[in-house]
Nucleic acid binder design. Structure first.
Length: 282
DNA sequence: CGGACAACCTGGTTGC
DNA sequence: TGCAACCAGGTTGTCC
């Protein structure tokens, strides 16, 4: 599910729905995803109050009032669902969401946070709050694609240091820019009119400016529409996002470009599929 | 540095 | 119908 807009959707909703709640229990049916002994996690979270939620790249952080924080990564098919006794089941996606609940944090009065994850790639860690930003996978993140620090000058600096790379693979490199995944790399490149296999050194200043603006625009728009549900993504209420209606190229290989009618192509880039319009993108 | 590839899992879809 | 091959939003580690 998760690129920046989807994770931001979950973090915002979780903040609103679970802030102030006290955790009363934790159960799991797939301990490999819990990166510490389950008994230890239970001891640390039971009785703790949720004081806030944050996002680092695609990581979700839930801060507790006891000086510790839960860090969660949803990877490919993870979801966090907030439910209560009056709402046992959220809308299903052929049961691919409710059918794969792996971990549950219980709150008071029957309320709970359920972590569903069909492919079991997602994980949960527990850290002291002051050490969250030192976690390897967070410490190694580059500038967040939606933060104010992601200025054009910063972007240009990144590109000037990586002249031999393909722009399509660079966009997925979380150590350089954090938050972009396979959907938004294709969409941002389409909006900027740049082919994914173009070398960064061959981008003109105008193209770099346009791409910088396109990245921010496409991510902001996707956050506003609560993400893309082309596949499994659901928000904390089990609702699909709406950005998939706005996709120009992602997963549209063989279909006509919405702007010019040319057939959209798919190529392999960094082991993953990238999509582009051969007419609109040069 | 960077590309290729396997691994972690459980499906759904496509083609013969 | 059966079955193999390929596809899937992420990240890490290894090898070259």
């Amino acid at each position: 599910m998760p690129e920046l807009p989807e994770v931001q959707t979950v973090v915002s909703q979780l903040g609103r729905k679970a802030k102030g709640e006290t955790i009363t229990g934790f159960e799991t049916v797939w301990t490999k995803s819990v990166k510490l002994p389950v008994a230890e996690l239970k001891r640390a979270v039971i009785g703790a109050k949720i004081v806030g939620t944050r996002r680092f790249g695609k990581h979700i952080v839930i801060d507790l009032d006891n000086g510790r924080s839960l860090v969660i990564h949803l990877k490919m098919t993870g979801h966090l669902l907030v439910k209560d006794s009056a709402n046992e089941r959220h809308p299903l996606f052929r049961d691919r969401v409710n059918g794969y609940i792996r971990h549950v944090f219980s709150l008071k009065h029957g309320k709970r946070i359920e972590f569903s994850d069909m492919r079991k790639f997602g994980w949960i860690r527990l850290l002291e709050t002051k050490h969250v930003e030192s976690l390897d996978s967070i410490a190694s993140l580059g500038v967040d694609a939606l933060s104010p620090e992601f200025t054009f000058d910063r972007w240009n600096g990144i590109l000037l240091k990586r002249k031999s790379r393909l722009i399509g693979t660079l966009l997925l490199d979380q150590a350089l820019i954090a938050g972009i995944g396979n959907i938004y790399r294709s969409e941002a490149l389409f909006r900027a009119g740049i082919r994914p296999m173009k070398k960064t050194a061959r981008l003109s200043l105008d193209e770099k400016r346009l791409l910088h603006a396109s990245i921010r625009e496409v991510l902001r728009e996707a956050v506003r529409l609560r993400g893309t549900s082309d596949g499994d993504f659901r928000d904390t209420a089990g609702r699909p996002g709406r950005f998939q209606k706005t996709l120009f190229v992602y997963r549209r290989a063989g279909e006509p470009c919405r702007r010019c009618g040319t057939i959209i192509r798919r190529i392999k880039l960094g082991q993953r599929s990238a999509f582009y319009c051969p007419q609109c993108q040069r």
